[in-house]
Nucleic acid binder design. Structure first.
Lengths: 272, 272
DNA sequence: CGCAGGGTTGAGGAACATCAAGACCAGTGG
DNA sequence: CCACTGGTCTTGATGTTCCTCAACCCTGCG
């Protein structure tokens, strides 16, 4: 399921997202892409990208594939606390934290780029705009994490799963890995259940309900959403946590546009 | 409920926390405290610190009191997505984000310090260690947000509320606003229910259960925990998300210590 | 062949939400 | 002074959501 689209396009998923969000211009993107190509690892599904308790020595960027952040609870269970899409920066705490609080595991095969402390310092000095873009990414992921909390706390199983789908579809769309409202889907129902705080059985039944409503189709490791707007309607999804122009997202019902307003219009002032 | 302890001690809650976490030394702390004293507002209970959709122009630091981050859902309900304790930095996205994704509301009276973009830039240039300490705070709050997700997704009502209590007690302890495992508690049961993703009625019944087990006592706007270790045991609480020496926390059952190991031992290398 | 992992379905019960009502208290306008 | 209001806490009755336990099927794999 590793896409080779980055061979056809000049930009990685991360820079695609940052450009679409109005954070990077294409010349700065080239710098970042070159850095991302320097130290790439391929991690097979189920394998850790890093473990809870590790001492962070670098930041990891998901180039292709999906990964989960998970936390080992005191009873031994692993609780998913976030999902990483291609184009996501996986923890920026290299500078300060002595230990990472939660591990990262590949779901399906994943290509990961690594940037060490020294390279990052040089980047910040020589290309401060690129450094700032990485901080933007960090802030953005904090917003996403808050939306994740709202999804768990405020919604029942069906809208909750729908809300997760909307969020992942939107993020993957920004990263450029969605075609016709469909994307790679290496997750098992157990994975999805853990992410949603549900049992696998209940998750299964809820998925069937979504399938019967023609809101999702899953086959061959690909998930498709025939009617993203209806999915967003069911979930009560609000894309404002993504800090992007809602017109870029596949929920063409106008509601998200109302809420987000024209975020991009003010992006010119970001680095003023 | 505004404490005046910061008159007796030289340090604000934020610097107290950063010193205890091994991030700041006392001389750098003086710089930060001076900055925190420059622009202080008093916000009464129920009033917004900032609103969802605002354009961020400064970062806000909670000096005293409690606040909640909340997100307006598409059906109009306000969903709590985080709780801010004294000593917490309330969103660092001033640099990049065009809009804030979730508002901040005072629960009980709150003293807030404001640092503008320019003052922050000067701080970063003249005192890079203090700037780094603020980034540490940001990373730490991301960890706390992940633990929040785990709490919602993995635990039932009783351990979930207990887990929230443990987290808040631990954070307030680091900030220096806890005495004898007791702290100010301006939250209504409706507030608590929203934070835990429960109805107020079920929250009420669960609190009664905790009270009957002698795990909490609430009176006069103060909450006390007669047996923090038992509370942590019930919750299955793991303090590793706090990135501090577990010996500083009031859960003296040895378990947290096992998990966190000696985090502080490696703090000397943080700025290497 | 056996076996493990993933998906699916059913029955029963526990956890939680919903609806409803009442107690208590602070404020507030008559 | 009173009545009235709204907010908070509390408790009960009832229904829904979700979990638990238990199967069973399928596939890939040793």
């Amino acid at each position: 399921m590793i896409s080779d689209e980055n061979v056809r396009t000049p930009h990685s998923r991360l820079t695609t997202k940052l450009i679409r969000s109005g954070i990077l211009d294409t010349s700065a993107a080239v710098v970042l892409d070159a850095l991302l190509a320097r130290d790439v690892r391929l991690i097979e599904g189920g394998m850790p990208v890093f473990e809870q308790g590790d001492k962070p020595e670098s930041i990891e960027i998901i180039l292709d594939g999906w990964a989960v952040r998970e936390r080992v609870m005191t009873d031994g269970r692993r609780q998913t606390v976030g999902i990483l899409c291609n184009g996501d920066v996986c923890d920026f705490n290299i500078f300060m934290m002595a230990r990472v609080d939660s591990g990262c595991r590949a779901v399906g095969p994943v290509r990961v780029a690594r940037i060490g402390r020294q390279a990052l310092n040089i980047l910040n000095r020589q290309h401060p705009r690129v450094g700032q873009a990485l901080w933007w990414e960090t802030m953005s992921s904090a917003s996403i994490q808050r939306e994740w909390v709202a999804n768990l706390a405020a919604r029942r199983a069906e809208p909750r799963i729908a809300g997760l789908f909307c969020m992942l579809l939107a993020r993957a769309t920004l990263a450029g890995s969605v075609k016709d409202a469909a994307m790679a889907w290496p997750f098992t129902q157990v994975d999805l259940a853990s992410a949603c705080g549900l049992t696998a059985e209940h998750c299964n039944r809820t998925l069937r309900s979504l399938r019967e409503r023609d809101l999702m189709v899953l086959e061959d490791g690909t998930i498709a959403f025939p009617d993203p707007a209806a999915l967003a309607e069911l979930a009560g999804f609000d894309a404002s946590a993504l800090h992007c122009d809602p017109a870029l997202l596949p929920f063409a019902n106008g509601r998200a546009a109302d809420i987000c307003e024209s975020i991009t219009s003010s992006l010119g002032q970001v680095f003023a």
